[in-house]
Simulated assay, not measured.
Amino acid sequence: MRGRTAAEVQEPWKVRRHELTEQGWELLAPLIPRASAGRPRVEQRLVINGMVYKIRTGISWRDLPERCDPWPTVCTCFRRCTSTASSPGGPAADADPG
């Protein structure tokens, strides 16, 4: 199910154990760059929650819950975030995403 919004996934938004709280999202949301061109972005909160879930549980990307966006989207965003956050050849460059 592509193009879901947070409201479509769960109404009202209830924070689960491995998801950002409303306060955490309010701090993080302004730091996420806006898309300037190309395809419209997916619901960023769902992508971030997918990343948090993966990091906290240690599951493989393919095992992400359905309430997160499709695993390839979350995995690609995670790889982009970790590659821009580290220096070339740093630990994130050698990390296995799966």
Rank of each mutant, 00 (worst) to 15 (best):
G24Q: 15
K14E: 06
S60T: 15
R56L: 15
E8C: 00
I32C: 03
R56W: 12
L20F: 14
C77I: 02
A29C: 07
L27A: 12
V15F: 05
Q44V: 06
H18M: 12
L31Y: 05
P33M: 07
R17M: 08
N49S: 06
L64H: 04
L28I: 10
A7Q: 13
V74A: 05
N49W: 02
C81K: 06
I55D: 03
R34Y: 04
I55V: 11
E22K: 13
W71A: 10
R39M: 08
V47G: 00
R16L: 14
P70L: 10
K14A: 12
E22W: 02
E8R: 10
L20I: 04
R62Q: 12
E26N: 11
R45P: 00
A7I: 13
R80C: 11
K14S: 11
T57P: 00
L27F: 10
P12A: 01
E66S: 09
E11H: 12
R16V: 08
C68Q: 05
P72S: 09
V15W: 03
A7F: 08
R34E: 14
Q23P: 03
K54L: 14
E26Y: 02
G50R: 00
A29S: 10
R2S: 09
I48T: 03
L31E: 13
L64P: 02
T73N: 11
R45G: 01
C68E: 13
K14F: 08
M51E: 03
M51K: 05
V9W: 04
I59L: 12
C77S: 14
R67A: 04
Q44S: 07
R80F: 08
A35T: 13
V9M: 12
K14T: 14
T21I: 09
G24K: 02
R41S: 13
P40A: 06
L64I: 03
P70K: 13
C77R: 15
W13V: 01
R17P: 00
R80K: 15
A37P: 02
K54W: 15
C75A: 14
L31N: 03
R41P: 05
C75W: 08
G3E: 01
T5M: 08
R67C: 08
G50E: 06
I48W: 00
S60A: 12
R62M: 11
T76I: 03
L31G: 04
L64C: 04
D69H: 13
